[in-house]
Design a protein around this nucleic acid. Sequence first.
DNA 1: GTATGGAGCATGTTA
DNA 2: TGCTCCATAC
Length: 727
Amino acid sequence: MPDLLEHLNPEQLAAVTLPGVSALILAGAGSGKTRVLTTRIAWLISTGQVSPYQILAVTFTNKAAREMQIRLSAMLTHNIRGMWIGTFHGLCNRFLRTHHRDADLPALFQIMDTQDQLAVIKRMYKSMNIDDERYPARQLQYFISGAKEQGLRPNQVEAFDDYTRRQVELYAAYEQVCQREGVVDFSELLLRSYEVLARNQSLREHYQHRFRHILIDEFQDTNLLQYRWLKLLAGKETSVFAVGDDDQSIYAFRGADVGNMQRFQQEFAPIELIKLEQNYRSHGNILDAANALIRNNQTRLGKNLWTRESQGDPLRIYVAPSEYDEALFVVDAIKGLTGAGVNATEIAVLYRSNAQSRVLEHSLFNAAIPYRVYGGMRFFERAEVKHALAYLRLASNPGDDGSLLRVINFPARGIGVRTLEGLQAAAQGAGVTLWQAACSSRVSGKAGAGVAAFVRLIESLGPATAGMRLPEIVEHVIAASGLLEHYKNEKEGQERLDNLRELVAAAELFEREVETGAPSIDTTGNSDTLTAFLAHAALEAGDTQAAEGRDALQLMTVHTAKGLEFHTVFITGLEEGLFPHDQSLNELDGPEEERRLMYVALTRARRRLYLTYAQSRTLHGQFRYNVASRFLDEIPPPLMQWLSPTPANLVAESESPRRDEAAESRPPREIERGPGFRIGQNVIHAKFGTGVIVNAEGRGADARVQVNFRDAGLKWLSLEFAKLEAA
DNA sequence: GTATGGAGCATGTTA
DNA sequence: TGCTCCATAC
């Protein structure tokens, strides 16, 4: 058991073994945050201070929750099933399933994702004759989520103008629809749990007494409602252990409130404050650059990362004339790196906005470099998967109008717009759900036959699948609904069929995890595995893209890269207007949030960091010239090595001569190692023949030259491996 | 019920 | 520039 605490540095050890008080752990990037969190839990349990049952550990992403569980089960021999560990939404789901009566929800309530939520709003607009131009559905969706994340119900939202008053009315109407249909959106999970706890004293005291330790990951990302939820759960005896990094707060735009860190210090006082500043990830130059950059922010609690590692390479800066040249540079550099033995999965190309990936992808494709792009459509969000899930949801809760509308005529059953309008009118008139209206529908003719067939189909699903295992149920529903047949007959249906098969596989995996009691799967309070699976599908939307090959290069936005690390990182598009982004500059705290974003980007790299920008770029069909990002000016020049001087920075250098170290930041005219190699030098290569050196980078073992061969064209060669001879 | 085209539009994103 | 959404036409 003491070996749990081995290899912890003094600050980590202090944090892990804090006696039962509340604490704020300021954990810098790469400082072993997850390790501290999980080791503390393991320490609390293995020293017998608490049982797993008394611990609540909450994260933002399923991935983080899973990682915690995996690490914990490696550290402990205890059964941790009784522990509450998961995402805010997952835990609230568990809570509401158990206390659905107190929460005034049906036992089989369904969870809507953002797509479903938008569909509900649009449907409501139609029945209320709302002008979508004046009150865009998307905007109302933000309005509702925003209000809920502040903990506000319609009657609590302050409205000083007619427009807002109308939005509040629509918010109220939306709530009625959801309540009638037994569906909840993501923020409702939290708000509803919060309200149950706030209103029900005995329940609240039960949980406050139960949870002796509450641990929160990524505390800087919490919103106001999450903060208040935690505060309600924490009793007098509870110690709250909040881990976060204000410098990595990059989600203010979706409601995260760094102010929670100050709030926590005041309202949970007295608390312990521990800073984890030793970084175990990056070389010194990378950290120095990150520290120097973030020092430009005014509002921060203050931290300075340091490392025992060597300084390492300087940051490599490349200025490209256009985004195409930027992409070509990245491709060349990657070829060099993988050629020198760096695994492609250990290389990440980061950008500020998704639109930038296209040019990069194009060049990578042409160069036949396998890559993987993060972001975009996720597995459980695909249309065919959602169709299948809609049938499953109807089997368990036919009152779910959204699911009914999605599939009542898919595959086509001859139920057209007019029939549907009739059904909707009947439902509205009688104040019932569409399903009830459909059951008592007396539509005649073909449409009537279609509706009747649909009703019979849904009604048959329950009895037909009784006693089946989850994957069999899913398989049955896919076939009985006609989805299978439909996609088989569709020309481009193969991929959709594959996804449906994948859904059966997902059900299989899910069932296995339920049986083996994997703590990530939670069936507490669920009446059956199907309901749990449907909640799982909504709460964990799955991966964004199937892995394309094993050794694929990683492409993603800086936001997506948070929490990850790579041997080599390229930060591209470092231009004013792009990074920092134009639109952020008008926002309150926008510029500082952009800088934190850059800080996150820099600290992803372990060994090697490339910063690139394009002097010109076409964005949204608009060609424009750009100046270098301010962030490049905020990194001390001695830490940087310019791989391609631009006239601009040559001028700058002659105007203000820099210290001696600045010599490193100029492109190397002489290439160390290999006698007398220079740019412009003619060389001979055993395989490629004769050529001329046109570019060079790196020193020592890293030194590489770009040679334009007469026959073989442009090639990057590592001086260490390639046998080059002067001609 | 599906195909086509034009208008409008364009940060970041977890559950 | 490229997509998403909606209206219109078949």
